[in-house]
C-alpha cells in the first residue's frame, strides 16, 4: 500500500516537473507587434516541426517594445507594424546593434457594408467622421436614410490598432460602436445588418458583404501591394544585421510563397508578390 502511494506520488511529481526532453540546439527569440504575432505563430509552428533543431520563443508586446528588445540584445527578431524611427536606429547603433529591415507581409483593411447598401465609396475623412460619431446617418454620405451602425474590432486587437492609426488620426472611436471579437464576427454582423459598416482584413472578404472604394481607389491585393490603397501598411521584421544562421533560415521560410507566405494569407494579410 505504502509503496503504491509512493509510486503514485512520484509519478505526479514527475508529471509536474516534465520539461521538453530534447533541448533544442538553437533558440530564436521573437518579440514585438501583436499585429505580426499571428503570422509568426502560424508559420513558427510549421517551421519548428520542419526544423527540430531550432526552437522559437515568440511573444507580443508591441512594435516599440520589440525594437527596444532588439536594440538591447534581448531578442533575435523584432516584429513591427511600422518602420523603425531614426531615434531607435541611433539607439541601436549606440549599443552596437544594426537593425536591418525585412518586409514579410502587407496588412490592408477594407471597409465593408451590407450588400444592399447603395453606398459604393467613401473618403478617409468620411470614414473618420463616421467612426468618430460625427456622421450618424447614411443619407449624409449618399445612402438611404437610417442610422449608421458602427461595427469595430476590439480595442486591443491589431486590426483595431491599424484602423486607429490609419483612419482615426488619434481620435477616439465613438463608444456606441459595436465591438466584435474577430474579423469573422465583423463579417457576420455586417452581413446581417443593412445599416452596418465594418472593417476587416483583406483575407476575410467574402460575398456576404460589400467592400467600399476609399478615396476613389478599389480595394484589391494589387492596389495594396502597389501602395495605392490608403488603409494598408507593410509588416516588418528587424534583425541585427542581415539575417544569418538559424534566423536566416526562419526568415527565408517566412518569405517562401509555398510556406510562410501561405501563413500570411491564412492570417488575413496580403502575401508579398513572388
Amino acid at each position: 500500500m505504502r509503496r503504491l502511494l509512493f509510486a503514485l506520488l512520484l509519478s505526479i511529481v514527475a508529471g509536474i516537473s516534465f520539461v521538453p526532453a530534447a533541448a533544442a540546439a538553437e533558440e530564436i527569440v521573437v518579440t514585438g507587434s501583436t499585429t505580426v504575432l499571428p503570422v509568426m505563430q502560424k508559420a513558427g509552428e510549421a517551421f519548428m516541426a520542419a526544423n527540430p533543431g531550432i526552437a522559437l520563443a515568440i511573444s507580443g508586446g508591441g512594435s516599440g517594445n520589440g525594437i527596444k528588445a532588439l536594440n538591447e540584445g534581448l531578442c533575435h527578431i523584432a516584429m513591427s507594424s511600422r518602420d523603425i524611427k531614426s531615434s531607435e536606429m541611433a539607439q541601436g547603433k549606440a549599443n552596437g546593434v544594426n537593425p536591418a529591415r525585412t518586409t514579410v507581409a502587407v496588412d490592408a483593411l477594407v471597409p465593408v457594408v451590407h450588400p444592399e447598401n447603395p453606398v459604393k465609396a467613401l473618403s478617409t475623412a468620411q470614414l473618420r467622421d463616421i467612426y468618430a460619431g460625427r456622421i450618424a446617418n447614411w443619407k449624409e454620405v449618399g445612402g438611404t436614410a437610417g442610422k449608421i451602425v458602427l461595427i469595430s474590432r476590439d480595442t486591443s486587437s491589431g486590426t483595431f490598432e491599424t484602423w486607429e492609426s490609419m483612419i482615426m488620426n488619434k481620435e477616439k472611436i465613438s463608444p456606441s460602436a459595436l465591438l466584435q471579437a474577430s474579423n469573422g464576427a465583423v463579417v457576420q454582423a455586417v452581413a446581417k445588418n443593412r445599416r452596418a459598416i465594418g472593417y476587416i482584413g483583406f483575407g476575410y472578404l467574402n460575398r456576404s458583404v460589400k467592400k467600399l472604394d476609399v478615396d476613389g481607389i478599389e480595394a484589391s491585393p494589387a492596389t495594396a501591394l502597389a501602395g495605392r490603397w490608403p488603409i494598408a501598411r507593410e509588416l516588418f521584421l528587424f534583425t541585427n544585421g542581415e539575417p544569418a544562421g538559424a534566423v536566416k533560415k526562419f526568415v527565408t521560410y517566412l518569405l517562401d510563397p509555398q510556406k510562410g507566405q501561405k501563413a500570411v494569407a491564412e492570417t488575413g494579410y496580403i502575401p508579398l508578390q513572388k
Binding site: 476590439d154 486591443s156 463608444p175 456606441s176 460602436a177 459595436l178 465591438l179 471579437a181
Partner: peptide
C-alpha cells in the same frame, strides 16, 4: 453588441463585463 455605452432602451447594444474580459 459590445458597445460601451449606457443603454437608453432595451434594444441598445451593451458591453457586459465578462465580454470585455474575454475579448481583450
Amino acid at each position: 453588441g459590445g458597445a460601451g455605452i449606457l443603454p437608453a432602451s432595451i434594444f441598445d447594444p451593451v458591453r457586459p463585463m465578462p465580454a470585455a474580459i474575454a475579448a481583450e
